[in-house]
Design a protein around this nucleic acid. Structure first.
Length: 327
DNA sequence: AAGGAAACCAACCGCCGTTCC
DNA sequence: TGGAACGGCGGTTGGTTTCCT
């Protein structure tokens, strides 16, 4: 556990620490304060949870001191917000959440915190990591910049409609052919977002307030929506899932208890302007691009791991041709 | 089976706006 | 009122895990 995790400027500036603690001189040099760095221990987690449970959140620097944590206030805040608070949601990003992220990112760019506000239980850090590892990976595969118009168009007119198809397929698979409430709600929401199926665009059904119905979807039908239980952290020690075990076994005050309801029902109201932007772009992908034949053998729709199979070989080849001719 | 590459993600950083004293 | 402290944000790092050859 006592590993060197000094990074960033400390590393760049040549500072090196042989352990997870760092010696900092106080302003008046009367005492040296040891500050821990690196991964949090279970004991530290409990100390932080325990303190906040009794005293609430406050000024993080003083909180860290009062809780007996040899951590910076920033570190405590980050740990709490990203992992320990009871309403943080763990587990894979669901298809609906992926769709939400893509849409909101297309609207706001790297405003991770703002995007996270629309994904209850998800942290900006998690969304940021998702974007970097999943989305940027595909831009890399296509040999184009993630900020390029081509890639953005690809997301909007290929990736996102396919996500919708998979959402619908998953809903249908889970619920059977019957028109269960989940299926109905999902399709309604998707239609209200302006996506009928891959490659198709439907008109929005905005209400008088300009919202698109505000239909809520229960994403829990996807197999990916699994909450992680006990697992190993990246340093080999057994790690308690901050939510499923660590926080569950702790007797929290009533605060936040009812928020679990929220993140089971992402609200797509905010996607009101999604539809108009789905109107055909400059025509990159309308040139004889017929989704249907592809879908028949596309595991992306058939139910594999959506997050890693956004494109099949044909897609990538086709898109690369498009990029080469448009660059 | 082993080694390398890629992916994942927790935790750090600096910057900057806000709040406090 | 101005400097210090704090909080929030986006960017980055690097250790571990998983995948691929």
């Amino acid at each position: 556990m006592e590993m060197d995790h000094a990074r960033g400027n400390s590393m760049r500036n040549g500072h090196h620490h042989g352990s997870a603690t760092v010696q900092l001189q106080s302003e008046d040099q009367e005492e040296l304060e040891e500050l821990r760095r690196g991964p949090w221990t279970v004991e530290e987690d409990f100390a932080l949870i325990n303190y906040i449970a009794h005293h609430g959140e406050g000024r993080w620097n003083s909180l860290a001191r009062c809780a007996g944590l040899k951590r910076t206030g920033k570190s405590c805040r980050l740990r709490w917000l990203n992992y320990l608070r009871p309403d943080v949601r763990r587990g894979n990003i669901t298809l609906e959440e992926q769709l939400m992220i893509l849409e909101l990112h297309s609207r706001w760019g790297n405003r991770w915190s703002k995007i996270a506000q629309h994904l209850p239980g998800r942290t900006d850090n998690e969304i940021k990591n998702y974007w970097r590892t999943r989305v940027q990976k595909h831009a890399k595969q296509l040999k184009c910049d993630v900020d390029s118009k081509q890639f953005k168009d690809t997301m909007r007119y290929l990736w996102m409609p396919r996500l919708v198809e998979r959402i619908q397929a998953a809903a249908n698979t889970t619920t059977g052919a019957s028109s269960s409430s989940t299926t109905t709600n999902t399709n309604s929401a998707i239609n209200n977002m302006g996506i009928a199926s891959a490659g198709q665009v439907v008109l929005p059904q905005a209400n008088a307030n300009g919202n698109l119905g505000g239909v809520q979807i229960n994403p829990s039908f996807t197999s990916e929506n699994s909450s992680t239980g006990a697992s190993s952290d990246s340093f080999g020690r057994s790690q308690l899932s901050p939510v499923s075990e660590l926080t569950d076994c702790y007797n929290y005050p009533a605060v936040n208890q009812n928020q679990n309801q929220d993140y089971l029902q992402p609200n797509y109201q905010q996607l009101g302007s999604f539809t108009e932007s789905l109107i055909s772009p400059s025509g990159y992908f309308n040139q004889g691009l017929d989704f249907q034949p592809m879908e028949q053998t596309n595991p992306w729709v058939a139910g594999g791991d959506a997050s890693d199979n956004m494109w099949n070989v044909e897609d990538i080849w086709f898109l690369q041709q498009q990029f080469n001719t448009n660059i």
